[in-house]
Nucleic acid binder design. Structure first.
Lengths: 229, 229
DNA sequence: GGACGTTTGATAGTATTACTATTATATTTG
DNA sequence: CAAATATAATAGTAATACTATCAAACGTCC
């Protein structure tokens, strides 16, 4: 996948002005990703970011309504990227089992910066997702944010995986619950490995992403009763 | 389980002064639970709580260092309560499968206030857990908080469930990862049912807790009843 | 080259939050 | 009753999450 760029046409509700259209916008997104991954979302402020990029706080507010929407925006790009990679990697695959396996590989693997988004370091984006994704919906405004379509990308990805599950076993009763559990576990287990390691066998020092894949793979395969490997 | 009270001896690191020892302390905890479950943790402040209980903001600060530790404290009580209920319900059970099933029932069921903690409405505590648990560790201070033992209760519960899994199938490779995934899914699926319902088959209008149990049960049973590498 | 609209930078200001400090008044205990 | 302790009341601070204003810079259309 080289020099392949993805232009995301996100819903207007994510931002005030589309940051992909201007230099300043791209710097906000690129440096914002760096800053959040470095200091964490709670400590991140538009003021700090404006200093980092040598601009003004008010300028950032002309792109994003607030820092919560900014986080939702970044994470939406991550999940869109995941879905794009799954499509790309399953394009020429016929078997449903192999497709699901490819999808599992994509969501559980370490993300390497591949310039799909030229202004963003995708590996930092994954760091943000591991530590912060759940914060985008664990708020009092979930329902509002959901209504205006801010979680569409995540749902779409979840439905895609659920559809693969159903294709393999049409009788399985909980394809979406399984898919959302897999997606959540894919970052949770990595976080646990890094910070609360007694909650998982996934070990941060020994190929955590590979083990994560192993765990998720076994969960899915057994859940839907297919023969494994 | 009537009139059975549980006195929790929590690590001193949770608080400055043990709220279980004084009237004011109990009101802080009881009304704090109510307030957080009503307005959400982000909108919750010690100032608002002090007004609600007719006390002073500074008085609350004499019990809890900050609102983050307060949340950790409340949720620690919830998981301690869960573990207590599991012990209570598995006390006279011999079979490992039945024990695990009892544990699954406890963690996936709707919590009813049972006065185990006289000052807290446990059903509100569960509401808080569903919406806020992940916030207690998704912070930059996880490692510090972990070091001083603030997540011991959650780990202990996770290990208890993992031990049951291992008892049933000593060859299963990921007992802890499975247990933490189950614990996380137990509140996540309820949250999805309530706010992002396309992410799960669990339906908030049709016995969500029962369906949640069904999903988790099928996950576990399939995961551990199949031996494989 | 001048007029026009848009984007940005610089500065200022506000309400709220997350605390800390101080002192006076209750309340408990010895 | 005296001494110790807990609480209430008040004030204050630094940081945050914004909003508002205005002037400078820039592109572009004639």
């Amino acid at each position: 996948m080289e020099a392949l760029q993805l232009r995301l046409d996100l819903n207007k509700n994510f931002f005030i002005r589309d940051p992909q259209n201007t230099e300043l916008g791209k710097r906000i997104v690129g440096e914002g990703t760096l800053l959040i991954s470095a200091i964490g979302f709670e400590n991140f402020t538009f003021k700090k970011l404006s200093i980092k990029i040598g601009s003004a706080e008010a300028s950032i507010y002309r792109y994003f309504e607030n820092k919560h929407k900014f986080l939702i925006y970044l994470i939406a790009r991550y999940w869109a990227w995941m879905e794009f990679k799954i499509d790309y990697n399953t394009n020429n695959i016929d078997g449903a089992e192999e497709k699901l396996d490819a999808a599992l590989n994509v969501i559980s693997h370490k993300a390497e910066a591949d310039f799909t988004f030229p202004e963003i370091d995708e590996s930092l984006l994954q760091k943000i997702v591991i530590a912060e994704t759940d914060k985008i919906y664990l708020t009092k405004q979930v329902d509002e944010d959901n209504k205006i379509g801010l979680f569409k990308g995540y749902k779409s990805l979840c439905h895609k995986i659920a559809a693969m599950v159903t294709e393999i076993n049409p009788d399985y009763k909980y394809p979406r619950a399984l898919a959302s559990t897999l997606l959540e576990a894919s970052h949770q287990q990595i976080f646990f490995a890094q910070h609360l390691n007694s909650l998982t066998e996934v070990n941060d020092l020994r190929d955590p992403f590979g083990q994560n894949y192993g765990f998720l793979k076994s969960l899915v395969c057994n859940a839907i009763n297919t023969v494994h490997e």
